[in-house]
């Protein structure tokens, strides 16, 4: 019984995702790209890095990177805390 409900819900969910995939803009042709064009044009002069992705990661969206390094740190502390005292 519960499995049937879940199955129906899963199908509905999946079909909505498919709808969203079909409604998405055409692959490979972004409609708006103001922000990214700004990055591509100005990254070299503003940050001095050839790699635009790196300059986005570490300069324009540096705070994300801090958060992401924090996530990794959190996971490591969590794993170590979970297995604290395990000697071998």
């Amino acid at each position: 019984m519960k499995k049937i409900i879940f199955g129906i819900a899963f199908i509905i969910f999946f079909s909505f995702l498919i709808v969203s995939a079909i409604n998405m803009r055409t692959f490979g042709e972004p409609t708006y790209s103001e922000m990214d064009d700004y990055f591509i044009e100005n990254a070299q002069s503003e940050t001095g890095a050839n790699n635009v992705v790196t300059s986005v990661v570490f300069d324009y969206r540096g705070f994300d990177t801090l958060g992401e390094a924090t996530v990794l740190f959190t996971a490591v502390v969590g794993v170590v805390a979970l297995f604290r005292g395990v000697k071998k």
Partner: peptide, 26 residues
């Protein structure tokens, strides 16, 4: 004020919560 940044902090909060919830898991 940033959507993706919100996701990052959501993950920080949930991973830290998980680690703290299972802190006595040893």
């Amino acid at each position: 004020g940033d959507v993706f940044n919100f996701f990052v902090f959501l993950e920080i909060a949930s991973i830290a919560s998980v680690a703290l919830i299972s802190f006595r898991g040893i």
